[in-house]
Amino acid sequence: MAMLARLKVADEDIAEACEKLSRIVDFVDQLSQADTSGVVPMAHPLDQTQRLRPDAVTEPNNRDHVQQNASQVADGMYLVPKVIE
């Protein structure tokens, strides 16, 4: 799970994290007691449908301002350790 979520959990914390996580899982397991046969899953609190936006360019370039929040940029690109394919 930690790998899938890309989270490093320190070695000394692993035991505690696992213990707490299993308590949470045990707790939510009580969902299995609910009778949900034929119940439509609810993804949104309101029964609304998607609104559509006109196809118009409304966002000007703001790269230099926005990239001030980035740790490592060069030539307008965000940098990461080399991606190997």
Binding site: D55, A56, E59, N61, R63, V66, Q67, G76
Partner: peptide, 28 residues
């Protein structure tokens, strides 16, 4: 389209890097 599927940034090809990536495209 002229603009992106979920944002108002341009889809024109060949622009300078990241000049057509708005906050929605950047996942801000």
């Amino acid at each position: 389209t002229k603009s992106k599927i979920f944002s108002g940034a341009s889809t024109a090809y060949g622009a300078e890097p990241n000049t057509q990536a708005c906050l929605v495209d950047l996942g801000y």
